[in-house]
Design a protein around this nucleic acid. Structure first.
Lengths: 192, 192
DNA sequence: CAATAAGATGAACATTGGTTCCGGTTATTA
DNA sequence: TAATAACCGGAACCAATGTTCATCTTATTG
């Protein structure tokens, strides 16, 4: 019969995961493996026992964040289907994510690749489905302009100025949301 | 009397500069020194004879780009003072820069630090002065909304999605310009 | 408690990229 | 043309980082 995993091993695995979560949230996916290891109170070799490569570890963490994003999107969709205006829910979703990305670089990293991976990631697929539906509802009820697509949302999320002060980030969000919610025919600037 | 610089030295200096220009334009400021050197048909040591450090070389190149940007801004201001609508000139300036940043990563690098260096750079100061004046004129003639500032322009330029296809970049620019040119009171999305 | 397989350790290794430096070369000047 | 100061080449150096491995430790099982 297969021996059950050693107690210290599962404990260490947990420590490594939380350490990586914190470290990546604070300093991004470029932290050294040794920093993660030392924060976990463990040697580098131990990290490599649990994760074959740095990429594997980082991916695991980033996927967790992506899962949260997917949860968020589905919650917003649920609210919307529960009667809340689609536009408000979309805006709320975007605002929440932008705020999060300023505090958690893992979320940021997840956002930067949004829409790039062709649906390979489960969580991203969930989010895409939910947001697509949300926008659809917005179209039907005319609370979201016809031309808005999921790609727009991803584009918006992917270009947030994460390393700027909060006031600047807010200003930026304001510009973007205004652009997003304005129909083409009422745009003030000359179109070429 | 001081000897005049050797002919091959000035020739090599030129080669290094053009190689660096091309390499940085195509692949960004992260290219290896050896790549620049080999493109210039020269050994690394020679590059270091002309530039004390990689940063010095990159800065030199990026400053060149910044100079172009400054030129652009002053030309737009001149047009404006010559009777062209301020808004059109501002939009033209932004559009040109966004296009350029997609083709020349040196311009992109310059844009990313825009507004960060506190006027230390001469070229940036020139651009800032010109754009500030341009916006001022736009305010007076009411062709640019009151709340628009240079900081807005820098924010916009600094978050352009450089690694996206042209159509996406255009869409993004459209969103941003709409946001920029829309006065606060006529924004469609809920303000919190 | 003894045997053992799994786990932990951390020094050593490999790679990458900036930087240095010494031996050989060459344009300039007298 | 000879003397020389500047220049060039590129191998070697160094620091940072991801990764491996031989050795020691320990939780589990019988």
């Amino acid at each position: 019969m297969a021996r059950q995993p050693r107690a210290d091993a599962v404990r260490n695995r947990g420590r490594i995961l939380t350490a990586a979560r914190q470290e990546i949230a604070e300093r991004g996916p470029d932290v050294g493996m040794d920093e993660i290891a030392s924060r976990a109170g463990v040697a580098v070799g131990t990290v490599y026992r649990h994760f074959p490569t740095k990429e594997a570890l980082v991916t695991a963490i980033v996927n967790e964040s992506m899962e949260q994003v997917a949860d968020d999107s589905e919650r917003c969709l649920a609210f919307c289907e529960g009667g809340e205006p689609a536009r408000d829910q979309l805006v709320a979703f975007i605002k929440a994510l932008i705020t999060l990305s300023g505090e958690n670089q893992a979320v940021l990293a997840a956002m930067e690749t949004l829409g790039a991976s062709k649906g390979a990631d489960v969580a991203e697929a969930r989010a895409t489905t939910a947001i697509t539906r949300l926008i659809e509802i917005g179209h039907e009820s005319s609370s979201i302009p016809r031309h808005v697509t999921v790609a727009d949302v991803y584009l918006l999320l992917g270009t947030a100025p994460y390393d700027q002060p909060a006031s600047t980030r807010e200003r930026w969000l304001d510009l973007m949301l205004t652009g997003l919610m304005t129909a083409p025919e009422e745009r003030p600037h000359d179109r070429q």
